[in-house]
Simulated scan of single mutants.
Amino acid sequence: MGILKKNPFGHYLFIKKWLIRIFGVLSHRRYRGFNELKIEGSEIIKNLPDNNVLFVSNHQTYFADVTAMFHVFNAALSGRVDSIKNVGYLWQPKLNIYYVAAKETMNAGFLTRMMAYAGAVSVERTWREKGKEVQREVNPDDHKNIGIALKDGWVITFPQGTTKPFKPIRKGTAHIIKQYKPVVIPIVIDGFRRSFDKKGLRIRKKGILQSFQIKEPLVIDYENESVEEIVEKLEYAIEQHPSFLKVIPREALEVMEELNKTRTWDYEGEY
């Protein structure tokens, strides 16, 4: 890889590689040390095409979620199944992994700007800005940039656009799926909002089980399924459809959030 080689967004891959290595080393013990990340389904990652893959996931923190995905994906590509043991898998990371993030968040400071360089596709929120409700049209350049990222590699998105559970899926993700026809891989995570603060930068509690489930690709009829049908399929896939509240009452979720209880796990591995 030439030292001056860039990705489609003009970012130097040499710099991006070192940022992923540095952030990866600094964050590794957050998932395998202070807390433990239980992974399921990572064998799916190894068999995916090199590009036009869209990962859709529920969202619990601004940055810890996507950081875990960089760990899991690169570990799986290096041959580790359901494990991120030994951070050496980040020495040669996959450099065409991107994640969709709010432009406002990624421009908030020096640290977030560096994290953005590591792979963010920044988009303008159409419904909120600086903590206030707004109404604006979708910026067509945002969809275009997501398409560019898909053409180049893998894209991670959180289609609810918020860390609050059971909020509606934004239709923009379904439009992107219909337009670019990516392989869609659902991911369901849990334990992150108990482990970290809302931004996912500060550890709130140690000894928490963090779960990370990768599911089989969704079967989607890109031409004939409606946006609404795809939205509903996404809600079920990432376990955020309102029907899940009948299994886990909202009141129970609120109590769990309030008490921030530690989840136990019979992990016997060695860091």
Rank of each mutant, 00 (worst) to 15 (best):
D141A: 09
N145C: 05
G2N: 14
A252S: 13
T264N: 15
F192H: 07
I20Q: 09
M1D: 06
G161R: 07
A75C: 07
V231A: 02
A118S: 14
G147K: 05
V155D: 01
S57Q: 04
S243L: 01
N145V: 10
D221M: 02
L245Y: 06
K85E: 14
I3P: 14
L209Q: 04
L48R: 01
G131Y: 11
H175I: 02
P8D: 01
F23Y: 11
V53S: 10
R204F: 06
K205M: 10
K17Q: 11
Q179Y: 02
G191Q: 07
L95V: 08
V188D: 01
R136M: 12
V81N: 13
S195E: 10
Y222C: 03
S226I: 12
R128C: 13
I176K: 00
N58A: 00
N35R: 05
V66S: 13
K16G: 04
I189N: 09
P49L: 02
G147L: 02
D50L: 02
D152H: 05
R170I: 10
K6Q: 15
P8W: 06
R194Y: 15
R29G: 08
I187G: 00
E232G: 06
A174G: 01
F9E: 10
I185M: 00
L234K: 04
I146L: 06
L259K: 14
P186Y: 06
I39C: 03
K205E: 10
P168Y: 06
A174R: 05
D50R: 00
L77F: 04
G269P: 15
I248V: 15
L77Q: 10
K215E: 09
V72C: 07
K38M: 13
L90Q: 08
P93C: 04
M1W: 02
R136T: 08
V53D: 09
E235Y: 07
P217D: 01
F196S: 01
R29Q: 03
A102P: 03
E216V: 03
N52D: 12
K206L: 11
S195M: 10
G153T: 00
A237L: 01
K261G: 07
A68Q: 02
P242N: 07
R170S: 03
A118W: 07
K94W: 11
F158S: 00
V53P: 04
L54Q: 02
Q240S: 08
M69N: 08
E258V: 05
I169D: 02
K5V: 14
P165L: 00
P159Q: 03
E124A: 09
E104L: 10
I214F: 00
Y31N: 11
N145L: 07
